[in-house]
Amino acid sequence: MKGTILYLLFALIALASVAPAAASTNGVMSAYVGANGAWFVDANPYQADFEPTAALSASLSPHISLVGSAAWGVCNSYLRGGAGARVTVTDVDNPDFSVGTGIQYRIASKAALRPNEWAVDVSMGYRPLPDQYPALSLVAQGWYGLDTHRAGAAVGLRWRIAL
């Protein structure tokens, strides 16, 4: 609990520190809505689920972004989410394909997906039809909990909303 509060304080301070510049710079903030298929390792009884998802990102530099997301598990009625930082490791000037790696603090509403913990992740995104549907992307993410050593993966679609 104490760790969660400290993390939230840290996240608020980080967001407050970049918010003035972000508000005056176009293209920093993006929101996404979409859906995932999600798979969990050693999270009995949950193995997989379908998740409507919302995400928010702030691209602060060519490589560094702050990211956060929340997902609702339709079959198992859970809410899970995370927030953290991501570093893009592929060509930052390619808006159609990117891979990023980073760390997020992950939280969940159900015991099977807890404890809340820091997890490293790698994410991939691809815009298959940038001319016809520039807001549409395919995404995939794998993560690994630093405390529990449990992994998970999600594959889905996103619709980007520039803020």
Partner: peptide, 8 residues
């Protein structure tokens, strides 16, 4: 900023 589809 840049546009990274993986950020979503």
């Amino acid at each position: 900023p840049r546009q990274h589809p993986s950020d979503g």
